[in-house]
Write a protein that binds this DNA or RNA. Structure first.
Lengths: 341, 341
DNA sequence: TTGTATGCGTTATCAA
DNA sequence: TTGATAACGCATACAA
């Protein structure tokens, strides 16, 4: 089979298509974009489409953006790691919906910097919207983005941002649910595991805050404990507890992985779960039910559907609303009680 | 504090900067890009920089791309989910290195389609390079990309692609290592768990192939077993095994999560691990060592560093080499023996 | 040492 | 119903 058209070495443009189809370049643009209000014969349309296909013509996104003034990009400069499986699935679904609405979803791999430097980096794309962790947005960064004509900036965070509309992913509530549960069970001293892996503070700090808030209301003692994901270290920690008459009688383990680590250590040290120490995890991973005793966990449920969120973003882009008082709860946390607490 | 400059409502351009600095637009470009061979006084440079800063000027990436003919984008249309934690960390590191070399890393969220449709979708960005799963590249897709002037297309896959240079992530070897180990231990019948979650076949099929290849050489029986991540279902499977005199005496569990699932089921059914049934996982997750008995797992080690890989990509972009015979081993698999086999 | 002028590929306005 | 033509914002060869 012959190649339908010669390979030029450079990407074909709409001018090439026009030449091949025997029409003007403008006509090509009309046809391929289904420009409304244009009366173009079906014969011409067919010629153009055929020419485009045979040349393998693909419009140049940069040229289109430059001319039209809109990129239709939704930029999500989010780290790939560290966010739970559930959140990742959420974002995948959200991307799917945004695509359906005609946006181009770009998960921008950046240096995880914050403030004005990061903002400049993002602004060069002239995206229609940016979704970013609240912590990376400073006042100057937001100003930069708005001044660069980016209509919509949305923060993802634990609490409403004073700067821009926020989608709240309530980590504080996760800790709070755990503490409420432990308070109900009459526990009086909660150890809160704080993973040492970098990048997780964004999640662990608000979870701790949630525990502390609820515990304070119940007169319960709270002690944060730094911990790496390491069997030795967990063993050391638990050994100290075993020898300590004032040891905590409950652990909120940040997530289910750390819960597994600490439960194993407790077991090895001869401490009973939940008899001596109750354990609560978070994320309700499949493995939670596989542990023995089965792990009590704080499950994070999707609130609005991805389609709802996408629609919301679309609306904000359309009317360029940047009202910081707009807040959207993304999830709700609820406790799944099993045998470990 | 006053705003240093009025907000125009539209993004400032290099012309705006030039006007404010009292120089020509070209000079702005020279200064901000440190154009070589230009002799511009330090005073002028300072004026330009100051004007740019006060306006919050950010170059328009699309305009720059259009004019210069190069986007410096490395497009990675990779799914966020499904790839092990290790692979994700690898890719993060690779992105970091590419950024250091001046590329803009775009993790493009697409519809996970393949072939010519996906290729057109990617080509609109005119990236300098594309990294994509081998399975998504058809001959037509590669032709489309090359014809659109995209110099470098690299496949990620289990085996070298006949179409483009390939970075090999050897899942086949993972299965092979597991089977070799089980053969050495004298096992005669291996069940291979095949997760039913969609998107994982890309990894599970080559792993099965690796097991099969090695097993065949040793006269060992292999039976693939479809399994969802579900305690009930695993229980049913194991119950059948318990009643079956010809049950497998070994399981390769796809990964450590499934290994945990099956180990729990085996234990509940009164089958001994590894006495009755040996279990081998993969990925060597931290939890592998936390299980009892401790889980034997196939660990995937980084071969070349991220910097090596990035440099390799950079070189390919520079000399526009598209030789499919270029193959780069990304990882090597090795077995970590513990008590479960 | 700096400014002028041109064109990248596209969309969109206006004539024809 | 279609075709010239003018921007969009920037980089760069060339002129001054």
């Amino acid at each position: 089979m012959e190649e339908p058209t010669p390979r030029t070495g450079r990407a074909p443009t709409s001018v090439d298509v026009a030449r091949l189809a025997g029409v003007s370049q403008a006509t090509v643009s009309y046809v391929l974009n289904d420009a409304p209000g244009m009366r173009i014969t079906e014969a011409t349309r067919a010629k153009v489409r055929e020419a485009a296909a045979s040349l393998g013509y693909v419009p140049h996104a940069s040229a289109r953006t430059l001319r039209s003034g809109r990129s239709d990009i939704v930029l999500m400069p989010l780290p790939r790691a560290g966010m739970g499986a559930l959140a990742a699935a959420h974002l995948d679904a959200l991307g799917e919906e945004l695509r359906r609405l005609g946006y181009k979803v770009v998960l921008y791999g950046d240096d995880r910097g914050k403030g004005i430097g990061a903002a400049r980096d993002w602004a060069q794309w002239r995206p229609s919207a940016i979704l970013v962790e609240a912590g990376r947005l400073t006042r100057a960064a937001v100003r930069q983005l708005h001044d660069t004509g980016i209509p919509t900036v949305v923060a993802l965070g634990d609490a409403p941002s004073p700067l821009v509309p926020t989608f709240v992913f309530d980590n504080e509530a996760i800790g709070a649910r755990a503490a409420e549960h432990l308070a109900e069970r009459g526990r009086s001293s909660i150890a809160v595991l704080m993973p040492r892996e970098k990048g997780l503070e964004v999640y662990s700090r608000p979870r701790l805050a949630g525990v502390s808030r609820v515990a304070a209301a119940h007169g319960i003692d709270v002690q944060p404990v730094d911990l790496g994901f390491d069997e030795e270290e967990a063993g050391g920690l638990v050994a100290r507890w075993a020898a300590d008459p004032h040891r905590p009688d409950a652990v909120f383990a940040y997530n289910d992985d750390y819960a597994m680590l600490i439960m194993r250590a407790l077991e090895d040290a001869g401490l009973r779960v939940p008899g001596d120490v109750a354990v609560v995890g978070a994320d309700d991973l499949p493995l939670a039910a596989l542990l023995r005793p089965r792990l009590t966990s704080v499950r994070v449920m999707a609130g609005p559907t991805a389609a709802d969120v996408a629609e919301r973003i679309d609306a904000m882009v359309r009317d360029r609303s940047r009202d910081p008082s707009i807040v959207f709860e993304l999830v709700r946390a609820e406790i799944v009680v099993r045998e470990s607490s």
